[in-house]
Amino acid sequence: MADGARRGLDLDLWSYRILLGLLGMLALVIMVGPVLIVLAISFTADSSMRFPPSGFSLRWYEALFDPVRSSQIHRAAINTVQVGLWATAIGTLLALLAALALARARGVAARSADTLFVTPLMLPQISFAVAALVFFSMIGFEAAKPAIVIGHVVVCVPLVYKTISASLSQLDPALIESSASLGASRLRTFRRITLPIILPGIGAGAFLLFMASKDNVAVSLFLSDARTNMLPIRMWQMLEGTLDVRVAAVSGVLILATLVLMLAMERFVRISDRLR
């Protein structure tokens, strides 16, 4: 009897482990594989996008970095970085102040504000994009780039707000109280105690905001004009057209930059701990 039960248990355990292992591996391959395949294709020697490529070359990167032939892509990339940096600076500052104000606040007003600040995450971005387009047109706000920055701040700021709030909620209030009871002013307590502790959270949130801004399609699409093309929109146009292989090279640059930034952020602020 005991022997039979034991064998049953082993079968149960091993069938679970093997099936879970296989399915998990398969799912991981499906999740990460496409990104690696794009990276491989960007080094193709062919003039069409086939996988696997027939040979290795840097010809599409050369075409991409050619200042004359790819000037439109370069301009779009510069716009994207500029907008991303502005949105990150403004969004991080606003979110930091708001998170400091609302951390541990329990009132109805505070909870409502807290909910409001993360609402853009749940709203279909396209609806907000139409709203922003109508709004900016009706108030006569013509400048495309500042409008895109504002739009990006709205849709991306919940990421940094949530990250900073999470690090504030882990801050031990006893530290603040002892600092105050030892006679430190509130500004001094903030600078010497709170800020150093939540700094990694601020860094991680700012990073996530920048990454979300550089990938934004909906808001950029509605608010950009002919002169302010953004990189994801430009790439989309290249995909809809004649499948320009330079798309693979742009993607390759983006993927490599993302990997490098991600590993750096993991090293300095443990980004993997802050996603939850």
Partner: peptide, 21 residues
């Protein structure tokens, strides 16, 4: 980190991958 790789890669890039696939 493996979850982060596709998350932080542009949706346009991931869409492009699927055109090829």
């Amino acid at each position: 980190m493996l979850i982060l790789v596709p998350l932080l890669t542009s949706v346009v890039v991931r869409t492009f991958a699927w055109i090829v696939l």
